[in-house]
Amino acid sequence: MTVKQMDTKANESLRFALASGTRPSRPNPVSASITFGWRAMLKIKHVPEQLFDVTMFPIMFVLMFTYLFGGALAGSPREYLQFLAPGILVQTIVMITMYTGMVLNNDIKKGIFDRFRTLPVWRPSFLVGAMLGDVARYSMASLVVLTVALILGFRPDGGVIGVVLGVGLVIVFSFALSWIWTALSMVMRTQESLMYSSFMILFPLTFISNIFVDPETMPSWLQSFVEVNPMSILTTATRGLMAGDANMMDIGMVFLSSIAIVAVFGPLTMYLYNRKQ
């Protein structure tokens, strides 16, 4: 008797739910992207472990390089830190961009990707939203790196504004860079292979740069690579902003290379994404 009643009640509410499911107008691209960004934030909230590498690695890097190389390279750790801090910020955030691809690669293999693709929304919003979530992650990591650096004695002459602008520039470039990983994540079958190939690209790029040392002592052939390496350009521009003597040319180059990366890998990602079966 009671079971029957419950059934009828459930059925009624189901019928009501069905009858009231009228279609609102389609969301615009911005609203759809923000919704996907909200999903990324929820994932951080529900799986806070993923923030571990965002917080622990930067702390480790700052401590390790400052005290390991500081004395040898710049006379004292404190002096070296003035040079290293903006660079280590670049390295940390650029490394984290890898996760964009890995998260995406994982999403695609799950049924939810099919659901998203049958919704009549602006298609890139899925990717843009995921990257908006990453921007939150980048900001958090930046905060960690800078806090540790400040505690250890980093004293940027550019002041708060210079530091904030520097972080902003790094995030803009990282947002652009993550499109490379999204494109790769559409091609790679497993998360592992994606991670290895991302490492293969990022490791040389971040180490063969001016992040850790001034390229002056390097052999000339290496110097010429370091000079054109986008990581060096980004690091120089960030250092400039934080020190309060930014070179507009460097900043312009960073924006230019960001635009170039998105112009190539944005459409490529979308092409691969639409063909994904």
Binding site: R23, P24, S25, R26, P27, S31, A32, T35, F36, W38, R39, L42, K43, H46, V47, R115, F116, L119, P120, V121
Partner: peptide, 17 residues
């Protein structure tokens, strides 16, 4: 990773609610 209600809100938002 999301809760039941979050899943439905997500889809509803993407449909324009």
């Amino acid at each position: 990773d999301l809760t039941g209600i979050e899943n439905l809100v997500l889809i509803a938002r993407l449909l324009g609610y």
